[in-house]
Design a protein around this nucleic acid. Structure first.
Length: 111
DNA sequence: ATTGTGACATACG
DNA sequence: CCGTATGCCACAA
């Protein structure tokens, strides 16, 4: 099976530690391929194993919550990991921010 | 090949 | 703060 851009997005997303979050832009940046839009689009196709709730937009807003069932689940998952969420925004966003390019030291393998 | 579609980001008024 | 415009580019039809 040919791996696609989507698979890379999933791999990066799976590297996000519990209690941390990152943005669509940083992921796109790390991949140096596609764009932030592609990341969001890819995550829409993400399976349940992908912690897509740890990816938010640049303002720290849960812009993808409508794709969760129910939508409140995204914030719920984040809170359960110690991330404070208020009004669909992450509080102390910078404190929880996790940047792929500064934290992933090994290349992602596509098998 | 062409068109439409985005869970975005940035710039501008 | 809000709305609009533009760039972005993989993917499906």
């Amino acid at each position: 099976m040919n791996q696609t851009y989507f698979d890379w997005v999933y791999e990066v997303t799976k590297q996000i530690p519990k209690g941390k979050v990152t943005t669509y832009g940083f992921i796109a940046d790390y991949l140096a391929l596609g764009s932030a839009r592609m990341v969001g689009w890819a995550l829409r196709h993400a399976n349940q194993k992908t912690p897509a709730h740890r990816v938010v937009n640049r303002k720290g807003e849960l812009s993808g919550r409508h794709h969760f069932r129910p939508p409140e689940r995204m914030a719920q998952l984040l809170r359960s990991e110690g991330v404070e969420v208020k009004d669909d925004k992450i509080l102390y966003f910078e404190k929880h921010l996790w940047i792929p390019s500064e934290n992933i030291h090994e290349d992602i393998d596509l098998s």
